[in-house]
């Protein structure tokens, strides 16, 4: 079973600070989105069960070769990296074209896994876009995967319930974080990760001409929130404040 996992390099969001409403991204370490790690774990579990290979594909900026070691240590066999040089974030339609092209070059692929949403943009469209570009069936928001001969039976988690769906391979899945608990690699695995095969390409090398973005960002600022931030000493004092604010019925 040849499995591809798409993982997006993002800034470690816990470490993003806001200054004058602007996010400060300098010196923030790069990492992979949490849900993408669930996708990787799912791929590694399937490989451990039935054999095959796990390839990570990622389109990102400098630092990607370093970041991908995390994924190689956590069980991926190899990586296909696409390095883009633009300053702006890579727009979803372009990421999808890059990823789809890279996956086509990998040859025979049985299963392509995505996170349900990337940690930073969380727009949940890149997986679906790639499924269309590769002309494969897709199932999104998967929380359970069962493999049978040439087919998958997956359970998807939706707002109003669960849905069990059967889909033939090759297929694209996007996964939710409930699917599994990603493993923490050991020190030896981390050391070995550096020696696993990596293919590195630029966006131009891969696509020839890189298409223009279809979305423009006009502004991106932290919302202004004004809170009173009044400390109260006791539960009784808190209840008094709530009373004064008009909750708990007017005294």
């Amino acid at each position: 079973m040849n499995i591809v996992v798409a993982m997006k390099q993002i800034p470690d969001l816990q470490q993003v600070r806001i200054k004058n409403r602007k996010p400060i991204l300098d010196d923030v370490p790069l990492t992979f989105g949490n849900i993408d790690r669930n996708a990787l774990e799912a791929a590694v579990l399937i490989k451990e069960q039935v054999g095959g290979s796990v390839t990570v594909v990622a389109a990102g900026k400098e630092g990607l070769e370093d970041t991908v070691k995390e994924a190689l240590a956590a069980g991926a066999d190899q990586a296909y990296l696409i390095i883009c040089n633009e300053q702006e974030d890579i727009e979803s339609s372009i990421s999808a074209k890059l990823l789809a092209e890279a996956i086509k070059q990998l040859g025979s692929v049985d299963l392509v896994l995505f996170g349900e949403g990337s940690g930073d943009n969380y727009s949940s469209q890149v997986g679906s876009r790639v499924a269309e570009l590769l002309d494969l069936p897709q199932v999104g928001y998967v929380e359970r995967i069962e493999l049978t001969a040439g087919e998958l039976v997956v359970t998807r988690s939706l707002e109003d319930g669960k849905e069990v769906v059967q889909v033939a391979l090759p297929a694209v899945l996007t996964v939710v974080t409930d699917l599994n608990q990603p493993r923490i690699p050991s020190v030896t695995q981390i050391l070995k990760a550096g020696r696993k095969p990596k293919k590195v390409m630029s966006d131009q090398e891969l696509l020839g001409a890189v298409p223009t973005p279809k979305v423009k960002t006009l502004s991106n600022l932290a919302p202004e929130i004004k809170r009173k931030q009044i400390q109260v000493g006791t539960a009784v004092e808190l209840v008094e404040k709530l009373q004064a604010e008009g909750f708990l019925g007017r005294a």
Binding site: E91, S124, S128, R129, E132, Y141, P213, K214
Partner: peptide, 22 residues
Amino acid sequence: DRRGKELAGRLAAKLDAGCLTD
């Protein structure tokens, strides 16, 4: 919603459209 977001990406790729969700 979840179904809608999933559909949005696929449809956008089909139509070569720009897409924003949420």
